[in-house]
Simulated assay, not measured.
Amino acid sequence: MDQIASWVATVATIFAACLTASNLGSRITGYGFIVFTVGSIAWFTLGILTGQPALIWTNIVMTALNLFGVWRWLGRQAKVEDGAQAAAEESRALPGETLFPASSLNSAKLVSADGANLGTCVDAMLGCGSGRLQYLVVAEGGLAGVGETFRRLEWGDAQVHDGAVQTRFDEGRFSTLPELTKDNWPGR
């Protein structure tokens, strides 16, 4: 029995770590915490079966923390994202400008006018007093953050369209935009 608990704990912990580290959205992260909970219960069971009090107490705490993670990502954060999406959808049917959730800029795809994928938005810089978007920081290339290039795209050269940020620039023009270092962005 302890071998089964050991393998369930190991596989669940590795799989859950992959889900949460991938940063694929609140729901995937929340599912990762569900799997982490299964893993911590299996580790707790292994601690009981093998008489390891440190493993038992560690995984009592880990189970509580994992359940908090489930609530945080599948409860609270998923509802916040659903509320933002509902407001964006409702605004399409109302007179005036269509809305989009600012939080979506943190992971929105940047596409050219012809639909070519240029990169992924990683952040946006806004004016403190005006609230106006000044520029986007877009990551292009690389794999899992390694080898990527950050570029500055002025907000005037972008617009939100069908859940993505769109620019009139093609790939050639986009590649000439200023490169940014990951830890030092311009103040203006």
Results as ranks from 00 to 15, higher is better:
residue 77 Q to I: 08
residue 137 V to Q: 06
residue 97 E to P: 04
residue 59 N to I: 13
residue 26 S to N: 15
residue 109 K to F: 09
residue 152 R to T: 07
residue 73 W to R: 03
residue 82 D to S: 13
residue 85 Q to D: 14
residue 125 M to Q: 13
residue 104 S to V: 13
residue 41 I to Y: 08
residue 154 E to W: 00
residue 150 F to K: 07
residue 154 E to F: 02
residue 110 L to K: 00
residue 155 W to H: 07
residue 145 G to I: 11
residue 113 A to K: 05
residue 119 G to Q: 00
residue 29 T to G: 06
residue 126 L to G: 00
residue 55 L to H: 03
residue 140 E to M: 00
residue 137 V to Y: 06
residue 111 V to K: 09
residue 114 D to T: 14
residue 27 R to D: 09
residue 130 S to D: 12
residue 96 G to M: 01
residue 59 N to R: 01
residue 82 D to C: 01
residue 28 I to N: 01
residue 152 R to I: 00
residue 50 T to S: 13
residue 87 A to V: 11
residue 40 S to P: 01
residue 158 A to C: 08
residue 72 R to C: 09
residue 92 R to I: 06
residue 110 L to V: 15
residue 92 R to V: 05
residue 87 A to P: 14
residue 80 V to I: 14
residue 121 C to Q: 08
residue 132 R to F: 04
residue 157 D to I: 08
residue 45 T to N: 09
residue 41 I to R: 09
residue 95 P to V: 06
residue 42 A to C: 10
residue 152 R to N: 00
residue 108 A to P: 00
residue 29 T to Q: 08
residue 34 I to A: 10
residue 50 T to P: 04
residue 101 P to F: 12
residue 56 I to D: 02
residue 45 T to H: 02
residue 121 C to S: 13
residue 104 S to K: 15
residue 153 L to T: 08
residue 73 W to M: 09
residue 146 V to W: 07
residue 106 N to R: 13
residue 125 M to W: 10
residue 60 I to Y: 08
residue 154 E to V: 00
residue 92 R to Y: 09
residue 37 T to W: 03
residue 109 K to A: 09
residue 31 Y to L: 15
residue 97 E to L: 15
residue 134 Q to P: 00
residue 114 D to K: 09
residue 25 G to Y: 03
residue 147 G to I: 05
residue 110 L to R: 00
residue 39 G to W: 05
residue 91 S to L: 01
residue 57 W to L: 12
residue 144 A to D: 03
residue 82 D to Q: 14
residue 29 T to L: 04
residue 88 A to S: 08
residue 54 A to L: 11
residue 69 G to H: 02
residue 124 A to L: 12
residue 139 A to S: 05
residue 107 S to K: 11
residue 21 A to K: 07
residue 148 E to L: 00
residue 87 A to Q: 10
residue 86 A to I: 14
residue 61 V to N: 13
residue 58 T to M: 10
residue 102 A to R: 15
residue 128 C to F: 11
residue 105 L to G: 06
residue 73 W to F: 12
residue 144 A to S: 08
residue 91 S to W: 05
residue 109 K to H: 11
residue 120 T to N: 06
residue 105 L to P: 00
residue 131 G to R: 05
residue 64 A to C: 09
residue 25 G to A: 00
residue 43 W to S: 12
residue 30 G to C: 03
residue 71 W to V: 14
residue 137 V to N: 03
residue 70 V to N: 02
residue 149 T to W: 07
residue 97 E to G: 11
residue 49 L to Q: 06
residue 74 L to T: 05
residue 30 G to V: 03
residue 129 G to L: 13
residue 79 K to F: 02
residue 34 I to R: 04
residue 46 L to M: 07
residue 61 V to H: 11
residue 133 L to A: 13
residue 48 I to L: 13
residue 102 A to P: 07
residue 27 R to A: 09
residue 102 A to M: 10
residue 44 F to R: 01
residue 124 A to H: 09
residue 137 V to E: 02
residue 101 P to M: 11
residue 158 A to N: 07
residue 134 Q to V: 10
